[in-house]
Design a protein around this nucleic acid. Structure first.
Lengths: 134, 134
DNA sequence: ATTGTAATGTTATAATATAACATTTTAAGT
DNA sequence: ACTTAAAATGTTATATTATAACATTACAAT
């Protein structure tokens, strides 16, 4: 069985490629404008590729910004839960990994008799680079 | 000095009122349709009221759902950072409080040389009621 | 009273995302 | 190889969410 990333279709590869080569998250219509020369003509083609890439964990959505970012972790298992550090100055994004977040949130949820399934965490502030400059 | 909530204008009060009487988060256009009889005719009037209510901490936005929820905590200081438990079955929302989240996230950020400013956390799962039913 | 800030009302439009449907490609079993 | 069912595609239209621009009004602080 091949890796999911090897089974990508043309549109999916095109969208993933532009996300992987971006230093910050991209919006769907930014992606669309950037790849129209590659045969993608409608928003739906972009959204469908994004949906699939999100489903297999190669791309995550930054909800608060309606943006999409390629996952840099090999075999990322954050297909549902995601945790990000988002720089308010340069818009760069770092993904937090590790299961301690999962167990921490499970406990927080339990306190409220809530059954944890998944989460989305967005931490805003200044990244290392921008901290030094400002 | 009066409470911020006592200084609300007519539109702001109208929007806050409908949110406070809802058992789940509402979307901006749902609010608009529900209060057109009260003199609010355009989306912008709703969004402006929401912006102000969010600014003073009476309302929070659920980013992943483009919805808005009234804050139930007196003098809520979550003007910027928010943490929610969101039931995937009934869409009810519970806001997490307490500063332990803040300190926990600060530490997580520090590990990545990131300067924490604020956060948005959305935990999805089943609330107590729905847990029992399913 | 004056005056500056905030809020309002209104029209138009931008930005984000999905519906519907006909067609083509792909992968898996036989 | 052929069949076939699932997935992906292409295309047009439209739904949903949010803001721009600008003229006017309310109102609190000097």
């Amino acid at each position: 069985m091949a890796l999911a990333s090897e089974n990508l279709t043309k549109n999916q590869k095109t969208v993933l490629d532009i996300l992987e080569n971006s230093s910050e998250p991209l919006k769907a219509y930014t992606i669309l404008f950037d790849i129209q020369k590659k045969g993608i003509k409608s928003p739906l083609q972009v959204y469908r590729a994004l949906d699939k890439l999100i489903e297999i964990g190669k791309v995550h959505k930054i909800e608060s910004r309606n943006s999409y970012v390629a996952c840099k972790h090999e075999g990322c298992n954050a297909k549902t839960s995601t945790s990000f550090l988002i720089c308010e100055n340069c818009d760069s994004v770092t993904e937090l990994t590790g299961n301690n977040l999962f167990s921490y949130f499970s406990k927080q949820a339990e306190k409220n008799n809530f059954n944890y399934k998944k989460h989305n965490l967005e931490i805003f502030g200044l990244c290392e680079n921008c901290k030094l400059k400002n």
